[in-house]
Design a protein around this nucleic acid. Structure first.
Lengths: 210, 210
DNA sequence: TGAGAAGTGCACTGTTGGTACAGTACTTGT
DNA sequence: ACAAGTACTGTACCAACAGTGCACTTCTCA
């Protein structure tokens, strides 16, 4: 997580993306106007179109940045947790605990997921963006599936446990948890859901000797 | 599920709501235009404003209808499943199986949830609508929590199992599963996630005698 | 058949996304 | 210190859309 030195242009672009991300998560992409973004960024319309070809180009940049950042966060978490133990199950559970703590430490309710937001507005976007969205989800899935398969090698899963579904369930819980925490305005909801998922993983691979 | 006889006005209103629901789930509320709705419904703009005060009024009607319908579906499912057994755990598991079958039988990927869609665009709406959205989620939560508490009375949950979180997890799994199935365009995803949740419930209340 | 429900038609306002292009100030390597 | 970009500003314009207001017509059903 190094702090890059940005040129003036890159800094403006990042500022626009920050403002756009916030607005899109609160109002949706269609209701986010270029006018409001440039007003907040202190820029003219021409300035905006210097950085982005059109609104669709903004969407693509937004999504790409979001996916890249979150892949880094996930990787970082699993690297840190696997340094603490050699046991894949133990390491995964520690990683999930890190993740839950991270979410619990957010000052407000989770701001929302760009992938989920775009999923519910996908007909506004070009094919590239929908593909990019799917690629993002597949990247998360792959990271989790690898770990669960490592675990399953050492610990036979309890009957009825579907490893692939269990991997996707992690993403589903996070996406669903974000929706619940936002809708109900319950800040603790998301971390609690991650911990509930963690408990399922624990039960799913629990050795049976009492 | 009786088929109501609709007056002409009610039929037009329902037609508008059907079109709006479909469009909103695909493009988002902000990007859904009144023009496109009236074009598809074969109506003039004045005709639209005869049925709805403004776009916000349309949103409210859309959400209310969605929540009412789905409460009915859930109730119906649990009534049917509880007729088959006296055991609350068994009944809940049967209900979840019904639900998964229902989702698996959908011709395409799930069309999406209005509550989730609105959650990601909530700053577009008035306070009433946000409150209504929360009320919808609380209604689902209550229905599930009642059942889980009944189960917990008879079967002591395994250590680490959080009944309240487990209730919310059902909604989270469905919302998250919808997002995954849509984003990845995998039709089977949603039912599979519900079955994975069902398996967690089974493990969570499993009696320990081997 | 008559009253109200369910519309049509028209004229208008203001906002937004987007295009086009000429000009300018700031920055950076050499 | 200067040239060559980089990062903008200013102006002028268009079409699509939300929304308002009101007079008028047609359809429906008790």
């Amino acid at each position: 997580m190094s702090v890059k030195v940005l040129s003036k242009g890159e800094a403006t672009r990042e500022r626009l993306l920050d403002l756009a991300e916030k607005a899109v998560l609160q109002k949706g992409f269609g209701a986010t106007t270029i006018e409001e973004l440039i007003a907040a960024a202190g820029l003219t319309k021409s300035g905006f179109f210097y950085h982005f070809r059109d609104k669709n180009d903004l969407a693509q940049a937004l999504l790409r940045r979001y996916i890249d950042r979150h892949n880094d966060i996930i990787d970082d978490m699993f690297v840190r947790s696997s340094e603490l133990t050699d046991d894949p199950l133990h390491g995964f559970l520690i990683g999930l605990k890190f993740f839950a703590d991270l979410l619990a430490d957010l000052p407000n309710t989770h701001p929302g997921c760009i992938v989920a937001s775009f999923c519910y507005q996908d007909q506004q976007f070009s094919r590239d963006i929908r593909d990019l969205n799917a690629e993002g989800v597949r990247a998360w899935r792959a990271r989790i599936q690898v770990r669960l398969q490592e675990i399953a090698k050492r610990y036979p899963p309890r009957p009825g446990v579907d490893i692939e579904a269990l991997a996707d369930m992690c993403t589903a819980i996070v996406e669903g948890g974000i929706i619940l925490s936002r809708t109900l305005d319950e800040k603790e909801m998301l971390a609690r859901q991650v911990m509930a998922y963690r408990n399922y993983v624990r039960l799913a691979f629990e050795t049976r000797e009492a």
